[in-house]
Simulated scan of single mutants.
Amino acid sequence: MADTAIFDVDGTLVDTNYQHALAWQRAFRRYDVSRPLWRIHRAIGMGGDNLVPDVAGQDVEQEHGDDLRDAWVEEFDRLLGDIEPFEGAHELLQEVKDRGFKLVLASSGKAKHVDVFLDLVDGKSLADAWTTSEDAETSKPEPDLVSTALAKVEGAAGIMIGDSTWDVVAASKLKIPTIAVRSGGYSVGELHEAGAVQVFQSLVEFRAAIEGTPLARATS
């Protein structure tokens, strides 16, 4: 039984995954590194420190890693105006809060981006805490951000809600179960294989079925 709900933000509450992929592709092209969008998309959910070597190799990371991450920020900034919240995001957060859970919105994004995303779902009015890239030394699939999120509210036990296999893997390293939504583009099978305890097509479907999930009631 859990007392804390840890919601991934990018790709789970706000529709950002394809903007992330496009921004990374444009950043790579600045350094004459060509990777197809589908390959980049498969790594979205990782932090930039892990994404660059995963997609482009360790040599590119060593030669251009920090510059690529700076270029990605510039490219992503240009796409911020295209980003929208997923249907039912705020309502689901309200539902979870009303059921007695501490609520943490966990992002490894830049603080200026996280502010925009939280405003899109009116998250600051509901969340007990939130995270940014400044809160963890290493990013998903390492578990640092998840443990930081739980510690911010002194939670005893958590439930992770995410959209990617990387969310599931990071949480599982702390023995925290994950409920997944398919907004990250991963299949039901992939998410279950990574360790997700339940998978929903959307936040709306998730909320409608919440009584049958670990988020039905918080521990007292």
Rank of each mutant, 00 (worst) to 15 (best):
G162C: 08
D32T: 04
H90P: 12
T219Y: 03
D70F: 09
V199Q: 07
K97P: 05
E87T: 15
V52A: 08
E134A: 15
G47E: 06
W72L: 12
L105Q: 11
A71W: 05
L80S: 08
G45N: 10
W24Y: 14
D163G: 10
I176N: 07
A21M: 10
L103S: 09
L37M: 08
I159K: 09
Q198F: 06
P143S: 12
S187C: 05
E211A: 14
L203N: 09
G184T: 04
L126R: 09
W72Q: 13
P36E: 02
L105I: 11
K110P: 05
T178R: 12
E75T: 09
P53C: 04
A43S: 14
S202G: 06
E205H: 14
P141Y: 02
V104M: 14
D82Q: 15
F7M: 10
D54I: 03
I6T: 09
V33M: 02
T12H: 05
V33R: 04
V153Q: 11
A171P: 12
I210R: 04
R78H: 06
V121H: 03
G81M: 04
V197L: 13
T148Y: 11
D163K: 11
P177E: 12
S164F: 01
T148P: 03
A196R: 08
M1F: 12
V121G: 02
H64R: 12
S183M: 04
A216E: 14
V197N: 06
A27N: 09
L120Q: 11
I210S: 07
V204F: 00
V121P: 07
A209L: 09
Q198E: 15
G88I: 09
T4H: 07
L105Y: 08
A170R: 06
G11Y: 05
V116S: 06
E154F: 01
H41V: 04
I176H: 03
R42F: 00
F7V: 12
Q62K: 14
G162F: 07
S220K: 13
L191I: 02
L68E: 01
L215W: 06
E91K: 14
D32C: 01
D98V: 03
R35T: 05
A157P: 01
L92K: 12
D3Y: 05
L68V: 08
A111R: 15
H20G: 07
P143E: 11
A208H: 13
F117T: 03
G184S: 05
D59L: 11
S34G: 00
G47I: 07
T16I: 07
G81S: 15
A111H: 13
T4P: 08
D70H: 14
V55I: 13
I161T: 11
D8W: 05
